[in-house]
Structure formats: C-alpha cells, structure tokens
C-alpha cells in the first residue's frame, strides 16, 4: 500500500482517535515513524481534533489546576499502596473465636455470681447454726449447774402442793439452798398462766405471816420456761406462788394462791 492509499484509507484518523486494536495501533505507529508524509498527515488530523475537542469544552475553571497540583503533592496520590481488606477464612475464624471468648467470659461471670450467692446463703446458715449451738451449750450449762445444785447436800427439796381451789392436781417442786440463798422451782405441773397474768413467787415467814416477793416466773432465768432459778433469796420458812396481773404485785393476792409449801 503506497502512502497516498494509506492516507486515503482513513486508518490514520482511527489511529489518532485510539480506537484500533492495540496490535493495529502499534503497527500504524511503526509505519508513521518511518514515513514523514504519514507523520505530517497524523499531525494535521490531530490539529483538527484538538480544535474540535477544545470547542466542546465549556471552559476549565482556572482554580482546577491548582487543585490538581495540590493533590499531586500530597503523598497519598503518589504510588498509594493498596490496602487489601482481609476477608479470608482466617478473619471469620477470628470473629468466631472472639465471639466464643466473649461467651466464655459471660458464662464465667455468671458462674462466679452464682457461687457468690451460694456462699452468702451458706454463711447465713452457718450463723444460724452457731447461734443454735451457743443457745444449746448455754442450756446445757444451765442444766448442769441446776443438776449440781440439786445434788448439793445443803439443798433441800420441797414440794409445794397445788391449791385445792385454783390448781387442785398440780404441784411445784422447789430446791432451796439457804446457804447460797438460791431457789430453784420446777413449775412444769402448774397450768399455764393466762394472758395478762403472771405467776409471782413469794418468800414466806410465819407468825406473823410476812410475804416477800422473790420474783416473777416470766422474768427470772428459766430453762424452757419450766425450771426457774432465783438468787439472793431471803431467809424463808416457806414459799408461795400466786397469780398476779402482769408486772407483779406488792402483796400477794391470796385468792389466787396456786401453790404453797413450808420448809
């Protein structure tokens, strides 16, 4: 193909447009480089295309150039390394592991909480038991003391028979140790005092009859409210028990005499 035909074919125009295949582009580039006439034609085509494309421009704002150059200078635009976000299976394993770990931590926290609660319950149970044990040992001590006192040779056992009117079938057992001024009363056979009333114990002296209050059977030291113990008991010739209003009375109400006995 001679130069004139080459030019007339229209291949050079498409070459300048850049719409030929890469192979054709390279071939035309070679041909043009060898032939000054083709070279001149290409320049001429390019000139008209430059004019045409410039004519379609709505006008570039002068500020754009500065903006482009600023962007070039910022390092980020120069050979920006591509950061690839890892989405391999390993990352999923990572997430799964993280979730499992979180679940494990929550489970351990829950377990710890449960154990704390258990410990609290056990502690309060233990306290209750300790109180019970203390009470029981105190009771045992009291009983032991009572037993020792009852077995003391200087202790005298008295029976205070029940008053025929008020408590015909009852009686009260008394252990009196005059040396130690102590009195132990077993009232397990007396009827229970009605509400608002209380049994009062009196030390008696005869000729003339002189009652002296020893105490109330609700307040004195007792074992299960059955066995009562009194200290600092005055010298007595007998003991009486009357039912009195709560709080006790100055003088015994003899109409409410429940038990009476002499030494």
């Amino acid at each position: 193909m001679n130069t004139k035909d080459y030019i007339e074919s229209g291949l050079l125009e498409l070459y300048v447009y850049g719409v030929l295949s890469p192979k054709e582009q390279a071939k035309v580039a070679q041909d043009v480089a060898k032939d000054p006439e083709l070279q001149a034609e290409v320049e001429s085509i390019e000139t008209i295309l430059l004019e045409l494309s410039k004519a379609t421009s709505p006008g570039v704002k002068p500020s754009l150039k500065e903006s482009v150059i600023t962007k070039l200078r910022s390092k980020s635009f120069q050979h920006k390394p591509k950061v690839k976000i890892m989405t391999s299976n390993y990352s999923y394993f990572g997430w799964a592991a993280a979730i499992l770990l979180l679940g494990g931590i929550l489970w351990l926290l829950k377990l710890n909480q449960d154990l704390q609660n258990d410990i609290e319950v056990v502690n309060s149970q233990l306290e209750t038991k300790e109180v019970q044990i203390t009470k029981a040992s105190q009771k045992a001590e009291t009983l032991e003391e009572l037993l020792l006192q009852m077995g003391d040779p200087s202790t005298r056992k008295l029976t205070l028979p029940g008053n025929k009117l008020n408590a015909p079938n009852s009686s009260v057992i008394a252990f009196y140790t005059d040396e130690k001024e102590e009195l132990i009363l077993d009232i397990s056979r007396l009827p229970e005092a009605p509400e608002g009333m209380v049994y009062q114990v009196w030390s008696l002296k005869f000729e003339p009859l002189t009652p002296k209050s020893i105490g109330l059977l609700a307040e004195a030291n007792s074992t299960e409210n059955r066995v009562f113990r009194f200290k600092n008991v005055p010298e007595s010739e007998g003991f009486g028990i009357t039912l009195e209003p709560a709080g006790g009375s100055e003088q015994p109400n003899l109409k409410q005499l429940y038990a009476l006995g002499t030494i």
Binding site: Y15, V16, G18, Q25, A26, A29, Q30, L50
Partner: peptide, 13 residues
C-alpha cells in the same frame, strides 16, 4: 510510549 502512538491519543484513552 511513543512507540504505541500519539501522546494525545494516550490522553484521549
């Protein structure tokens, strides 16, 4: 590369 074509063509693409 000028071996492949015009600079203007390169810009066009």
């Amino acid at each position: 590369s000028s071996d492949k074509g015009r600079f203007f063509t390169w810009l066009l693409n």
